[in-house]
Design a protein around this nucleic acid. Structure first.
Lengths: 233, 233
DNA sequence: CGGAACTTTGACACGTCTCAAATGCCGTGG
DNA sequence: CCACGGCATTTGAGACGTGTCAAAGTTCCG
């Protein structure tokens, strides 16, 4: 599944921290990239394994999760085009604390850690970008803690639907453009799969969303927002 | 409450990121520090406010929380001697995402952000230390997400007691050395105060802990660990 | 010593989980 | 291209954990 095509996505994307690199550094990055393809359901790396570089998503979507009680996964984030994963473990030099698995056929670029550390040493803007990236994720994580701890399953589901809609956009038919099972959704929220299904049915009955197979389309944003914020309680 | 005594705690403590500074930089740090005192219950900064520097705890304990539904606080971390708070907002140049409040009479050093950014620019080791600090916290936060989402209140309380014991140690009588109300504990776990009280009573009845006023002492570590990990389920 | 804040206990309602079974969907192989 | 098997989804019933409200008891601090 390895292909040695050079990838310009990473170094050129202003979304990634690599936007802080100088021209020479970008060229150096290009020269040291390795691209890989992953079929749906394949795993880049598992929790506990040693990883030796960053993975920058070129195409597709990945779910990032920790394994909890009874091997039940807890999804803590997603990664799609332009997102980087694996950086936490590389930078803190610890085993991977999450598992990364593709939700569809995907491609990623691998950037060896030696190169990353060289950039950090030489380019303080790059270091600062990395710092800001982790700080942003830290804040997101803290918000999630608050939400999970204080909101009901119903509220969290409403919020999660809005988050998914915003993160992945819509397909031609207006459905959220990501391929998640009901079980995946329950792993985001931290609840039973059946609870997700039941509340989704309610939302549909109330005209808030439309369902077609496993696809979900949001019909009434403001009401979902109200529910997610508990204004209706 | 401001006192201009220079503080050696920050720059000398190997626990903090300031351990990565050179000798000259440490001196520069010392020269620019400002120390403040906070009485029990006082607030360093509130969620949403602009903060202009790091706060390094010299003495005492602070709770760090986000305000959620119905103004209910959600504690996401603590800070005690050698810990730094405020860095996330400073580094990502955003308003504070948490409120920091002292649990006892405390002292902190304030380090202006201009100095921090100068150190980042000049000293890649310092930048790397900061990166690793945020990465570590990010992992902690992700673990917390998994725990809150998947564990019962009972399990989380057991886990929280062990965490508090490890974080704050014991006083002369063997009780956990931190001054938390039952409500504070419920704000860590994300549950009702009454639930905390009820389960604490059970734990006491089962001989796992001892209670004296609001103080809590752990008697049976291994059993609490079992409960927190759901091995007994 | 008094009052406010905190802790404790009880009763009850409700949300959510678990278990079970039926149905629907989809990819694989014949 | 269809049939099959397996996996995902859906629905129902019942049990259990947890939240809410109320009231009494206790501790802490001025």
């Amino acid at each position: 599944m390895k292909s040695m095509n050079v990838c310009k996505t990473c170094s050129l994307s202003s979304k990634t921290v690599f936007g802080s690199l100088t021209t020479e550094e970008s060229e150096q990055l290009e020269a040291n990239l390795e691209c890989y393809e992953y079929k749906k359901g394949e795993i880049i790396y598992k929790e506990g394994s040693r990883i030796t570089g960053f993975y920058c998503v070129k195409k597709g979507v990945f779910k990032i999760y920790k394994t909890g009680i009874d091997s039940k996964p807890q999804i803590v984030a997603f990664a799609q085009k332009g997102d980087i994963t694996g950086y936490r473990s590389v930078l803190s030099n610890e085993p991977a604390c999450t598992t990364v698995e593709s939700l569809e056929d995907s491609e990623v670029c691998y950037i060896p850690s030696s190169l990353i550390f060289e950039f950090i040493r030489k380019n303080s803007n790059f270091a600062l970008s990395l710092i800001q990236l982790t700080c942003k994720e830290l804040n997101t994580a803290n918000d999630l803690i608050k939400d999970i701890a204080q909101k009901t399953v119903r509220e969290r589901l409403a919020e999660t639907l809005l988050m998914l809609d915003q993160t992945f956009g819509k397909d031609e038919e207006g459905f959220i453009n990501v391929n998640l099972t009901r079980e995946d959704i329950s792993s985001i929220i931290g609840t039973a799969t059946e609870s997700v299904i039941r509340i989704l049915s309610e939302f549909k009955t109330d005209g808030l969303i439309s369902l077609k197979g496993k696809k979900i389309g949001i019909g009434n944003y403001s009401k979902l927002e109200s529910i997610s914020n508990s204004f209706l309680k």
